[in-house]
Amino acid sequence: MKRIKPMAAVLLATFAAGGNAVAAPDLKVALIAGKTGPLEAYAKETETGFMMGLEYLLGPKMAINGRKLTVIVKDDQGKPDLGRTLLAEAYGDDQVDIAVGTTSSGSALAMLPVAKEYKKVLVVEPAVADEITGAKRNKYIFRSGRSSMQDALAAASTLKNGSVAFLAQDYAFGRDAIKAGKQALQTTGSKASVVHEEYAPAATTDFTAPTQRLFDALKDKPQPRVLAIVWAGPNPMNKIADMKPERYGISLAPGGNILPIMKTWKAYAGTEGTTHYYYGFPKNKMNDWLVAEHMKRFKAPPDMFTAGGMAAASAVVAALQKAPSGNGDQMAAAMEGMTFDTPKGAMTFRKEDHQALQSMYHFRIKKIQQNEWDLLELVREIPAGDLPLPVTNKR
């Protein structure tokens, strides 16, 4: 007697003989961002960059190896509880293969255990808290964005000696950044002394009192005297500059900010700082495309979080190409040590903590600006190899 083939085998043979094939299911990615709330501008830039990145990498078909890629966008409003809920919804109900998010560090930290619970990869962009790839991380967490320590190491590399005081917002981002700043000075071997830390509420509009305390702390200390400003959202540099720090020999050192904020710094030409992206600095094919297309579509160059969104898209595409099954363990293994292209150039997820190693930039505010977006000149690109980023996670 002839054995009867199982029905599945018969169907497969039939489809093969007829030249047909069962369509593979769509690949799904969730993008979670704080699209309403204080970081709305950052979130919208991230979404724009993410979608443009997929377009650049995948073309109009938006497919990887013949499988259509679907993006599900969710707004966590910068709220940790909502971020946690939305990620669980994405993994559980929406059955996404991989997720990206989010804007707020508080929300991102709340999401980390969810990725571990569902055994699915989460690419963190653009939240910067060091704990994300440090003490709180797990095997499913990868960050394409930079960390607070990478910001701090870039800034510290420009300060060899003298005195520094910090101004930051009085919440997790600000305190994490200043902690990193102090550690970075030690790590880079800087002889600069930290003489004061000032924390102000995020909603502060009158900076007179905190600025005077910073001036008083710095004015008699060894030169150079630097007031480092670490601030998310509307930056207080103009208000601080109006109080004339130069009368005490104090220089301001702002971190890079979004373009609408930096446009207001024109009066402070010559001031130096560090940033993780400015559209005119990187010279590569991906950034050239991003700048040209963004100018064409939005009449303005891409901003730092736009570039970050594109970097996250590149990481997602590379991960799905390496592990198309969507299995989180396989994907996490494939992503360790993975190098992927971004508007800043190639980045690599470090095996030890899954932080993307990347260049940073030392800038100077231009004295002669050719147009409204011609804001910064490059002092030096700081390669990843010059940023001794410590490994702080417990594997």
Rank of each mutant, 00 (worst) to 15 (best):
F50A: 08
F50M: 10
M52Q: 08
G53A: 11
G53C: 04
L57Y: 01
L57H: 08
L58C: 07
G59F: 07
M62G: 07
M62D: 04
A63F: 05
A63P: 06
G66V: 03
R67A: 12
K68N: 07
L69D: 11
V71T: 15
V71D: 12
V71M: 01
I72W: 05
I72L: 05
V73L: 00
K74L: 15
D75G: 03
G78P: 05
G83A: 07
E89Y: 05
G92V: 05
D93W: 03
D94N: 14
D94C: 03
Q95R: 15
V96R: 08
D97L: 10
I98T: 07
A99R: 00
A99F: 04
G101L: 00
S105I: 04
S105G: 14
G106H: 08
A108K: 00
M111Q: 10
P113G: 09
V114C: 09
V114W: 09
A115G: 15
E117G: 00
Y118F: 14
K119E: 04
V121G: 06
V124I: 14
E125L: 04
P126Y: 04
A127M: 02
E131R: 13
I132E: 03
T133D: 07
R137C: 14
R137Q: 07
K139T: 01
K139S: 10
S144G: 12
G145N: 10
R146F: 14
S148Q: 14
S148I: 11
Q150L: 15
A155I: 06
A155E: 02
S157D: 02
S157R: 14
L159N: 11
G162M: 09
G162E: 04
F166S: 05
F166Q: 13
A168E: 00
D170M: 01
Y171I: 06
G174A: 09
R175D: 00
I178Q: 08
